[in-house]
Amino acid sequence: MIDTRVKSPILAFFIRYIFFFITIFAVYIFLKGHNAPGGGFIAGIIFAISLVILNMALSADEMKQILHYDPLQIATTGLFIAYGTAIAPVFFGYPFMLHKMIHLHVPLLGNLHVGTPVLLDFGVFLVVVGVTTKMTFTFSHSSDSDINTLAQDESGLSNTNEEPVVAPTNEQATTE
């Protein structure tokens, strides 16, 4: 159903613009999360889905240019932010994970309570983006031997002892 080798130029054209709007939407969802349905997780997965769709349209190199970082690194950064938010209060003599709030008035978005919970939520956002894209990219590429080297380079979690998983050669991967 999804043939990763077909890269449609029309789809690519549209998706670039759609991608832009989705990103804005994701940021909105993320920021409103504390007071309305939304939050880091939902924003993250929306953003990740847009990246996944983008991936269908673009070639691996283009995709790499857009992403710039290995998704796993993004996810790890998210983890660090979340852990950091949790650990920070300890140094001020507070219990682990205590959150502090700052109240801000931002035009367009209205009353914002910016505080450490946002940082944790941002960590969640990054993790979800990184994890979802990493999972789908690696899995969709895994039957394709030449793209697999990319996956290998990206992850960095491999060495000479690893050999990419390749589908049995005699049976062509076919769509249903």
Binding site: L72, L79, A82, A86, H99, L120, V124, K134
Partner: peptide
Amino acid sequence: VVDFRGFDTMGEISVLVIATLGILGLLMR
């Protein structure tokens, strides 16, 4: 999710990252 029981969420995102590692491990023989 982020404040009262934020610690669960921290665990949850750790699970996601670890699952990705597991998937990578499976896909790299």
